[in-house]
Design a protein around this nucleic acid. Sequence first.
DNA 1: GATGAATGAGCATTCATTCAT
DNA 2: CATGAATGAATGCTCATTCAT
Lengths: 186, 186, 186, 186
Amino acid sequence: MGEKRSDTKQKILEASLKLFSKKGFKETTVKDIAREVGITEGAIYRHFTSKEEIIRELIESITRELKERLLEAINEAPSGTEALNLLVKHLLDYAFEKPESFRFLNLYHLLKEARVENMPGELIRHYLESLYEKGLLRTRPEIALALITGGAERVFVFKEKGFLKDENERVKEELESVLKELLIRK
Amino acid sequence: MGEKRSDTKQKILEASLKLFSKKGFKETTVKDIAREVGITEGAIYRHFTSKEEIIRELIESITRELKERLLEAINEAPSGTEALNLLVKHLLDYAFEKPESFRFLNLYHLLKEARVENMPGELIRHYLESLYEKGLLRTRPEIALALITGGAERVFVFKEKGFLKDENERVKEELESVLKELLIRK
Amino acid sequence: MGEKRSDTKQKILEASLKLFSKKGFKETTVKDIAREVGITEGAIYRHFTSKEEIIRELIESITRELKERLLEAINEAPSGTEALNLLVKHLLDYAFEKPESFRFLNLYHLLKEARVENMPGELIRHYLESLYEKGLLRTRPEIALALITGGAERVFVFKEKGFLKDENERVKEELESVLKELLIRK
Amino acid sequence: MGEKRSDTKQKILEASLKLFSKKGFKETTVKDIAREVGITEGAIYRHFTSKEEIIRELIESITRELKERLLEAINEAPSGTEALNLLVKHLLDYAFEKPESFRFLNLYHLLKEARVENMPGELIRHYLESLYEKGLLRTRPEIALALITGGAERVFVFKEKGFLKDENERVKEELESVLKELLIRK
DNA sequence: GATGAATGAGCATTCATTCAT
DNA sequence: CATGAATGAATGCTCATTCAT
């Protein structure tokens, strides 16, 4: 009953995420989204007041979801070093599990004006800061963060372009291991 | 000397690079470019047959320029390890020297359908491959490449958002040092 | 008694009258009307086959009602001069009693193609004609009619804009007195 | 040379005035205007930033023009009574000379939110006020104004509907004479 | 009777491109 | 070479109307 109510809204969000992350915001038209869902343009506006609102709703839910996962990692960890391990693991898990969301996030912060405070990265940066002060980090937090998120994102571009042909699992493990080695001062 | 011939054309390319890298392709209109140059829309079409041609010309020249620099690095180097050092250095030099070009390159490969063969990264990847086979690389070439280019790009986003407040020179040095340590197997 | 049967229908007509007279026909949407009534758009179509039908029904009932009042005035009157007095009085009574209806009527004849025969004014004009022929009217019937109806309508615009701040009763009396003086040849 | 520059812009204004005054604001589409001018919709936007801007420009120029005429009347007149005569004459001259402008003005103040201060009527009202205080006016200024402007406007509706078949000149004279008689206290 | 999702035509506006001057 | 008016296709959005529930 209640499932059907927001069935279409959910489909619109999913189609939008797919298209926005692949083609960009301006490049994706409302008609594209409607076609992908299998409805007409007008129907979109029963669920959203504007294209911009779809984007807003997507960025909010993705940000929330990723932040939750990262907070989990921080809270789970017994020690600082272990937290760093978990942070990297959770971020990569998310990126490989939901590449479209991850890509959308990157695109959004690349092209749209965004408050720094809202970026999930800020959460990581904040935590890395404390690790850095304890001497557990090999490089400054911002640089570490750039390597984690930038490296992960690039891997997806490579996969998409056919540069990288390995299975996701193997790629993730290798990236995870090299990042840990890179970041943690022994 | 034929240099003055394409004074306006050069200005159009520069204005386009600036706007495309900042706002994206679709988001930048021909009128925007014309306004930035100080001419009218029609005049653009004296120098380019289409907006798409401006993009094409930009991506070609940026690709060519970056490739040249990278080839230089490879050829200059006395040894494999040293070549890797130089490669990282040259890439970061370029990125920090011409952030708009670097950003444009990233955006282009993120949003537009591009042949892998044309990417400057392919050049690096190819070379890294040979280093990897000699056991000089700590991780697989694609992952290494993802960390170098992804990390560099992300650093610019951070600088733009006010995340990173240090001087360029310091940031570049730190990034360079951590990447070298990361990649080169001792 | 059949009165309750069209409770909602009556509400729709009232809401429509209010909105149409304030904002115009095109400017008032079916959704606006539904919201004002407190139902949904679809429900409107249980009672009317189209937006146009609502307008039609409104103009018909307003026209009928006003005509009835005017006929009453004519029939009531003992003499021609007295009939003129009553005509003016009844018209102003109606306008001040049901300003929305009066406004709707004006707007309709201003913007929509309307048969002259259906206008309540035609009734007045016809009667004025006979008075004119008897030499009781100071000016030609059409001009007299224009002053009566145009003057009354304008008074409402002025009240709405805050131009006129007096009480309705006083305004009506003054308008009535000046119109009688103006029209009746002594 | 300079004439051709704003040739199209002028045509757009004229076509818009014609259509708006006949059909209303919402009822007149940009396509209607373009068709009337003989250009495409897009061309409109080289001369105006929006449909609303066309309306704004029209109301401004009409208001300015009418105010100028009325001020002239006031300044020209040797005495108060004569000024009133001239005011009525000038207003009717304008209305009969430019019925579309007059109609547009009325429609605008009927349907759009307008500042009272900007209405040409305010100019007349202000002047009538001073005449009223001197005892020269038979009725209160607002009522007088309502009869002048409302009566004039209605006459055009009647002409359009075929109610009134006389020549403009005769209608104007009669209206003028009755209004003067009505307003001026002897 | 009523709901609310969906349709489809239409609207204001934008924009890459063309072309006469 | 450059201008700026114009085109025409496309875009985001609105809205009267329909229809399954």
